[in-house]
Simulated scan of single mutants.
Amino acid sequence: MKIQTLSSLNIIAALALAFVIGAVLMWVSGYDPASSYYSMLVTPFSDRVYLLSALAFSAPIVLTGLTFALGLRTGLFNIGAEGQVYMGALGAVIAAYFARSLAALPLALAIGLALAVLWSAVPAVLKMWRGVNEVVSTIMMNWIAYWTVIMAVSTAFANPLQPEESVKTPEVARLTPLIPGTDFTVAVPVAYIVALLMYIFLKYSVWGYRISVSGLNPIAARSYGIKPERAVLAAFALGALTAGLAGVLQVVARPPSYSLMRNLANVYGIGFDGITAAMLGRGHPLGVVLASIFLGVMQEGARHMQIEAGTPFEFVRVVQGLIILLLAVQILRRP
């Protein structure tokens, strides 16, 4: 299987077709597509609070989008960000359970990132040593993470006062909104800065060069003394760091709960949204940021679409699923 970079025309065509198919499905289901799309894509720009909320939605998508984009750069179709987000969030919950002070914040980062990297090591080792397809192994690891974290949140780390969620991050360790009355926390600039650092790393560092060359042509990479296996390990590990960070921030920097919901509602799907963002952003870190903002607008707009047009929120997921499907068909091809 060969992974190719999409042109801007491919992406625009996929977006247009996804929205057209979505409109048809809305119309067949008895909803007004024009009103629904207006509420989804225009309303979020009508108020500062709406727009800042859309940016808050975009932050974790940027981080998981970088995970997938880094995999693409290395010639991998790594869809393991979802499970790594869960593990990062679990790390933040564990930190909140054991530390009821400011120390909970650095502890959350340390445990969350470590768990995410360890979780990514399984598919990385299977890929290198046994040639196991990363799509299969990461899907399995996602589901194992999902049920493992649900079990942990439902038992050992459950909130005795609110059993539908985990223990809360201590107030002193929370990253509260930078602008009162909004969801805009330091998580947003952190995500964008990480994307910028990733761009600099890939473009100007030695390891960034090795990763890119290994993905483009492993045979040529070996002739230059580059070991593609190490590039695969580096891509899995770095991708796990960004995905794990997304999970940590969803717990310590996402009002109002500052906890992990028992059904993982506040982290579920972030890894898959990152796949869409990476595809729309053509695997470029800065493109991922722009695509994530677009998806953040869609997610914020979905709430208005449900209220103003009466169209179920799930139609946004339908459109996003169509985008992934149409882009994946183009981005994956056999030699």
Rank of each mutant, 00 (worst) to 15 (best):
A291N: 08
N133P: 01
A96M: 04
V149N: 09
A95L: 01
M151H: 02
A278H: 01
I21E: 09
L113F: 04
F57G: 03
S36L: 00
L72A: 12
Y224M: 15
V85K: 05
V28N: 09
L249M: 12
G71N: 09
W129M: 08
S39I: 05
T67A: 14
V319L: 03
Q162R: 15
T169H: 07
L216G: 05
A145H: 05
F77M: 14
G287F: 03
T311W: 00
E171Y: 03
D273H: 05
E314N: 14
V316W: 00
L63D: 02
A99V: 06
G247Q: 06
A108N: 03
A240M: 08
V318W: 07
T74E: 12
V49H: 00
G269W: 12
F201M: 10
N159K: 06
D32M: 01
A104W: 00
S39N: 02
Q4H: 10
L290Y: 02
I219G: 04
A221I: 01
T148L: 15
A16P: 06
M141W: 02
S7W: 05
M1G: 06
P60G: 11
V194E: 11
K127M: 05
G247I: 02
G239R: 14
T182Q: 12
T138Y: 11
A234C: 08
S120D: 13
V316L: 14
F236W: 07
L6W: 01
G83W: 04
Y38S: 10
I21Q: 10
R222G: 06
Q330G: 05
A56G: 04
I200P: 03
M26A: 03
A89D: 01
M1I: 07
Y268E: 10
L264D: 08
I150L: 10
